[in-house]
């Protein structure tokens, strides 16, 4: 098995995840894209574990850990999204503009 095939697939999958995180408006879709990126990482870990024939199986074990962490992350992320929905009636990330600097008067900023 050539290492370059799975690694290239993983890189492309990661890029697709990046696009999803940056371009999607719905928070749940953003979470899905994060999952895509995590899976790209998992694929990498498995491939390198196979390639290096690690005696401790660190790559595959780490993959398992990442899956666990991803589950926890999705649980927490959905909780946050639900809290957001309760408060705002919307989960569109580009409408959450509290960080913006709105109509601050130009003169008396100190």
């Amino acid at each position: 098995m050539h290492v370059v095939y799975p690694v290239v697939v993983s890189a492309l999958l990661f890029s697709i995840g990046v696009y999803g995180v940056l371009a999607r408006r719905n928070a749940i879709l953003v979470l899905m894209s994060v999952e895509l990126m995590l899976n790209a990482v998992n694929l990498n870990l498995v491939v390198f574990d196979v390639w290096l024939k690690d005696r401790l199986h660190s790559g595959q074990v780490l993959t398992l850990f990442v899956i666990v962490i991803a589950a926890a992350e999705v649980g927490l992320g959905l909780a946050i999204v639900l809290a957001l929905f309760r408060n705002r009636r919307s989960i569109d990330v580009d409408r959450l503009r509290d960080l913006s600097e709105r109509d601050a008067p130009a003169e008396d900023r100190s």
Partner: peptide, 10 residues
């Protein structure tokens, strides 16, 4: 479902 950011994201 896509935000206005999609071209930059792409």
């Amino acid at each position: 479902l896509d935000s206005g950011n999609r071209w930059a994201a792409g």
